[in-house]
């Protein structure tokens, strides 16, 4: 199964389980959780089922394209189900079968993982799922997001696509993965790993990043106070800050003590955005609350 077939298979599977196939969000982010389709939609009582692929950036994980297992830019497949259904583990195992990973053939274990995102003011309990000893998915029941208690609870599944693909294709280097029958992952992304590693670790302009952080932080605060309720743009600014922090971190420009400070600043924005989003949706009467058949088709119709 090629990399793109894996993606398509998951899209197909979760579409058939009433998920809205959302799209990657067009701002840099460290994890699919940052996508408003997860972070914001998890907030409040409105039901939400969505699945999407998300390119993620973790500048500190860059290895100049030298390490076969580590990338500063990689892909997650993200599924969020709210309220959490009664059988999310079964659904998940079915999705693996759909990928050709037969749970009856392999050893699939759910190992304790207490998930926490200090920048998002979020935490949850769940597992890392191991397939024959390899971590392939994070499985989390959100308890708080943006410091708001979840009610109902959202369950989040995050598939590590490269890991799964490496297993399925039996290759030892991520760069050897077949994206299509003819084109390898490395051909598409190796050069990008090299250049971005150089940029993140050596070249990125620290002053620019620092002042961008400060200014986006300010912008976020101002947007949150804007009389016309610009919560969504505000949250984009919060994501920007998180990304600038990540690059500063990779650039070695953040001391241990400053770290906590920066994280606290992003969390503060995330909290405010979460609160403002909740209030805004509440003001709108939680529009998705009574949408019984929340299916991709319904969504498309509405957009037209």
């Amino acid at each position: 199964m090629t990399f793109q077939e894996i993606i398509l298979s998951l899209q197909q599977f979760w579409k058939s389980h009433d998920c809205i196939i959302s799209q990657p969000y067009d701002t840099e982010k460290g994890a699919g959780t940052f996508n408003p389709a997860t972070f914001l939609r998890a907030i409040g009582p409105e039901p939400w089922r969505s699945a999407y692929i998300e390119p993620c950036r973790r500048p500190t994980d860059g290895r100049y394209g030298d390490n076969p297992n580590r990338l500063q830019h990689y892909f997650q497949y993200q599924v969020v189900l709210k309220p959490a259904p009664a059988d999310p583990q079964d659904l998940y195992l079915q999705s693996l079968s759909h990928l050709g990973l037969d749970p009856y053939q392999h050893d699939i274990q759910f190992l304790q993982d207490d998930w926490e995102s200090p920048t998002l003011g979020a935490w949850g309990l769940g597992w890392e799922v191991r397939l024959d000893g390899m971590e392939i998915t994070q499985f989390t029941y959100f308890q708080e997001v943006g410091s708001l208690e979840m009610n109902p609870v959202t369950v989040e599944l995050t598939y590590g696509l490269e890991r799964i693909a490496m297993y399925l294709q039996e290759v030892d280097s991520v760069y050897d993965l077949l994206w299509t029958e003819n084109v390898r992952y490395g051909e598409l992304y190796h050069e990008s790993e090299v250049q971005w590693s150089i940029y993140n670790f050596e070249v990125a302009d620290i002053n620019l990043l620092q002042s961008s952080f400060d200014r986006y932080e300010q912008e976020c605060q101002q947007l949150l106070e804007h009389p016309r309720g610009l919560v969504l743009p505000a949250y984009d600014c919060c994501m920007k800050c998180s990304h600038f922090f990540n690059v500063l971190d990779a650039r070695g420009a953040i001391s241990v003590a400053q770290r906590t400070g920066y994280i606290g600043r992003v969390r503060n924005l995330a909290r405010k955005c979460a609160q403002a989003y909740f209030e805004q949706r509440e003001g709108m009467g939680f529009p998705l609350l009574h949408k019984k058949n929340q299916s991709p088709r319904a969504k498309v119709r509405k957009k037209r």
């Binding site: 076969p68 392999h106 050893d107 397939l131 000893g133 297993y167 030892d172």
Partner: peptide, 12 residues
């Protein structure tokens, strides 16, 4: 299959 998978993870 399971043994091979575990060996690969450790080897990496």
């Amino acid at each position: 299959l399971i043994t091979k998978g575990n060996e690969r993870v450790l080897s990496a």
